[in-house]
């Protein structure tokens, strides 16, 4: 507390990792598109991504659900908003999260979505990758040498 009172740095670092890996997610989606089976981690990553979107949707509906240790609904919402290409109203954000969730569900069940939908999903995942890369490059854990 003491330092944080003195410390007036107010940068907005991304201080939470995503609860899934975007590279694994992309590979899983690619496999589903190609009708290949997923390994355990890929299947789990699909679930984690859907969970993440569900937490965002719940938050938009006024309910706080915890996504993972150290990430609550409002934080998941903020991360999600930062991956969107346009700015939206709260309802718009919820709609986007639902859309992505539906696309993932469809892909999971049928193994195919339209090219337009695929591009949309792909673009979103690349935004998530940026977030993930920023998080891992933030040098937040600076004193790491033993």
């Amino acid at each position: 507390m003491v330092m944080s009172i003195l410390n007036m740095r107010e940068d907005y670092q991304i201080n939470q990792p995503l609860g899934f890996n975007t590279h694994i997610l992309l590979e899983a989606l690619q496999k589903m598109k190609n009708h290949e089976g997923l390994d355990e981690l890929e299947a789990a990553t699909m679930k984690y991504t859907v969970d993440f979107l569900s937490v965002v949707i719940s938050f938009c509906e006024g309910e706080n659900k915890r996504y993972m240790a150290g990430m609550s609904g409002p934080e998941a919402f903020s991360l999600f908003v930062r991956t969107l290409a346009e700015s939206f109203t709260l309802e718009g954000v919820k709609q986007q999260a639902e859309d992505f969730k539906n696309l993932l569900d469809t892909l999971n069940q049928c193994g195919s979505i339209s090219d337009q939908e695929w591009n949309k999903l792909n673009k979103w995942i690349h935004s998530l990758m940026d977030i993930e890369y920023q998080w891992s490059s933030a040098e937040r854990f600076s004193r790491w040498r033993l």
Binding site: N21, H23, E27, E132, S136, R140, F141, R143, W144, L146
Partner: peptide
């Protein structure tokens, strides 16, 4: 993808900070 995921873990310094 798994190597990229592992690289992110290592580069974040999370593990090293823990140690």
């Amino acid at each position: 993808a798994k190597t990229k995921a592992a690289e992110i873990i290592w580069s974040s310094g999370y593990l090293q900070h823990f140690a």
